[in-house]
Each structure stands twice: as structure tokens, then as C-alpha cells.
Nucleic acid binder design. Sequence first.
DNA 1: ATATTGACTTGGACCAAGTCCATTGTAGGA
DNA 2: TCCTACAATGGACTTGGTCCAAGTCAATAT
Lengths: 136, 136
Amino acid sequence: MSDLLERLRGRGWRMTPQRRVVAEVLAGEHVHLTADEVLARAAARLPEIARATVYNTLGELVALGEVAEVAIDGRAKRYDPNAHRPHQHLVCSGCAAVRDVRPDGDPLADLPAAERFGFTVLEVEVTYRGLCADCA
Amino acid sequence: MSDLLERLRGRGWRMTPQRRVVAEVLAGEHVHLTADEVLARAAARLPEIARATVYNTLGELVALGEVAEVAIDGRAKRYDPNAHRPHQHLVCSGCAAVRDVRPDGDPLADLPAAERFGFTVLEVEVTYRGLCADCA
DNA sequence: ATATTGACTTGGACCAAGTCCATTGTAGGA
DNA sequence: TCCTACAATGGACTTGGTCCAAGTCAATAT
Ligand SMILES: [Mn+2]
Ligand SMILES: [Mn+2]
Ligand SMILES: [Zn+2]
Ligand SMILES: [Zn+2]
């Protein structure tokens, strides 16, 4: 049983069959599903689940900080259960496979003050692109 | 007159009033317009220009490498005439202002081999987020 | 065990961003 | 000036997502 479900229950999250299957579908490493993929997998287990419910539930999981919303390609957003330790993404330009990666160093430090235009810079998002072993 | 237009003419790009105004609208530093913003500004000069023409023209400019397509926020794509020297973006979370920035160092070098999962990594895209002087 | 009720789910309408296509127009060469 | 390959048009269509009124139900209280 996923400890995501445990944590959610511990936080007093109201449990329903729909919410359970959505949370269950979002388990594992390197998981970056679109909302429609989540819907398809959830519907395999609970056929009458509605699209709006999947969006509502994903939105709440994001608000709770349990799932990260990732815009990888300007198309559908992806939902990433690995929200507890921040990380970056490595994306295959061939097959769109996504891996979680942890670069060395602090990318914030690479932006010199002269290039900050008076901004208070708070976070950095890095996307590495290339070809996976299969697509190369 | 923009040297973008000169370059396009030199490349044998067929010139039309529509293409001219789209290219003219895309001039300047730190310009990151959405397709609809390009349409609005082009239509101020050439009222009957069609949405599809703006999309067609932007698509061609991107294919020619004269304009870069940037997905900054998972909303509408932005079109960036500063395509000749690669750069990264600094985005205000308050007002969505976008500045071009050039971080120090090579971000590719920060991704250790052990974190490459057999990929041939070709490019890196970095987005810095924070608050601009006005929004802070 | 049952009643209660506020929160959750549903399906469909709606929306924004973008693509597609048949028709009409025209830039630029002969 | 004529021709024609390429470009522009506008409207339908698609994708990804939001919103809402009505119905349902999980959790609590009795
Ligand atoms: Mn991830
Ligand atoms: Mn830029
Ligand atoms: Zn691949
Ligand atoms: Zn701002």
C-alpha cells in the first residue's frame, strides 16, 4: 500500500474510491503522467470516474504538495509523485521518456547579479534534453 | 528597418504585407510575445490579417531559426526574436515579465554521468523564477 | 444503526490555444 | 502582362483544461 495514501489519510484527507485510485495510479519512480493518462489508468479500475474528478484530485494533491505539476513540453502538464525532494528532468526528444535527475551544484549561483535585473530569484527549473539509449 | 527582414529577403523568403508586419512586430530586446499578442499588434497595422496567417508565419520563422519558440508557463507559447545567441529566461511570478539572461558556466557539466541514464544529452533549458523589482 | 450534512462526484457546457483545409488571392518570375 | 506556385483567409475542428448545477456519499453525531 502506497505511503502517499497513508500520508493523505493522516492529513485528514477525505477518502473516496475515486481519490484512492488516482493516488494509487501515481506511485513509483520516474512517473510523469498526463491528466488523461491518469484518467485512463484510473478508469481501468473504476470505469465511471469522471474527467473533472481526476482534474480536481490532481489539483488538490498539487495544493497539498504531494504531487508536482511539471510542464515538460508545452503540451499536457505532467503529474509527478516525487514531490518531496526537488529534482530536475531529463527528457528524450525521440520518445518523450522522462527521468528524474539531480544535477551537482546550485544552478542559482550561476546567475550573476548583473543578470538579475533587480529580481529576487527564488527558484530554478532545469530541463535537459537529448536522446535516450533506445532512440540514439 | 529591421535586419530580420533583410536576412529573410536574402534567404529568398517570399515577402507579403502580412509576413512583413509579423516580422516587424517581432523586433527588440526581451521580446516574448504570444501568438495572440503578435496578432493584435499586426492587426493594428493590417486589420484584415488572419490568425492562421500569424501562426503560419511564426511557424516558418521558427523553422528558419530566426525566432525561438519558448514555453514559459504552460500557457500560450511565446515567440522570441533573440534566437541567434542562445540564452535562458528569468520570469516574474507576479506579473509574468520575462528577461533574457546568460548564466555563467555550462549547465550541462553539472549533470554527472551517473545521472544521465544512458542518454546523449544535447541541450539544457533553464528558467529562473522570482519577483521583479515592482512585484517584490 | 440511522440521520445528517458538507464535501465530493458527475456530465456536459464552455473556454483558450492551436491546427487543418478548401477556397481565394497574389508575389515575383517569364 | 500573364501565369502559377505559393500564401492568405476564415471557419471548422482538436486538444487540454475549467466551471457549474445537480446528485451522491463519507464521516460524524445521535
Ligand atoms: Mn520528476
Ligand atoms: Mn528570450
Ligand atoms: Zn527515447
Ligand atoms: Zn513582476
